[in-house]
Design a protein around this nucleic acid. Sequence first.
DNA 1: GATGCTATTGCAACCTATTCTCAATAAGAA
DNA 2: TTCTTATTGAGAATAGGTTGCAATAGCATC
Lengths: 147, 147
Amino acid sequence: MTFQEKASQAIREAGGRMTAQRQIILELLETSDEHLDAEELHRRARVQDSDISLATVYRTLNTLQEAGLVQQRYHSPEHSRKYVEPVHADEEYHFTCRNCRRVMPFHSELMQQLKQQLEAELNVQVFNACVCVDGLCPECRASSHKE
Amino acid sequence: MTFQEKASQAIREAGGRMTAQRQIILELLETSDEHLDAEELHRRARVQDSDISLATVYRTLNTLQEAGLVQQRYHSPEHSRKYVEPVHADEEYHFTCRNCRRVMPFHSELMQQLKQQLEAELNVQVFNACVCVDGLCPECRASSHKE
DNA sequence: GATGCTATTGCAACCTATTCTCAATAAGAA
DNA sequence: TTCTTATTGAGAATAGGTTGCAATAGCATC
């Protein structure tokens, strides 16, 4: 079942409706492999429907998140902007360079372990973990040494 | 060297000045073991100086952060508010209940490992890692099962 | 296909956390 | 004490996101 099919079904099951606007947003989420924020999503959605509003993008993302179909990520250490992606098996986290703002994605089995540890020790159920690491990327690290 | 001494020194070295307002904020940061946000800090600072402004609190926190003396933490998954704490040896992270909003702090040596892994694999230098985990706390987990 | 209920939409106003502008003040070096 | 300029308080501004409302449009039912 594709992401779009899963999403339509989840929306229906929650008593919601499939609209043209939601179709567009789902398609963009599924086909893009980049991380999108609401504004970028809005920009792209307008190519297909120039009337679609930013508020609709935000509302759709919230609906999808409640249904557990997309998850938020923050890239910068300031966490000033939410990025969104379909929920996948492989979870990606981000390192941001404090100097040049570059974002480097990474994977780590340690995050899976962390979730398990929390579920065992705190007796909680984990839905989502957000990790933002910041520091200096290889280039900025090298150039800061030179000075 | 106490936190306040270190901070005064760092501020001086950066060509800054020690002011009464900064003293108050440093003292609050050092003596409180809770996590404070800018507004709570402002509220408490006003007990000592009723004229101190919220902008000054924010500015001081930014100055301290640039000097590496305090670090930000986010408690809720929405990351709507920054909390701040002096940089310590023992790093604390937070789990937030999606249902009742309760915040449970936790420690994990896995985070230390994650940093080391990143430094080794990505060849970066890590300054700070922020982890926000959300899900259901033991109580909400139990009551959601009953329904 | 037409009808009716109500979820969804676009728009604009709103909210909240944080930053900025600017004139006045006050560190602290000389 | 004087002078330079970092810092301050006040309030306006900004940014990202949310909300109220009247109009629109899914979609279940006739």
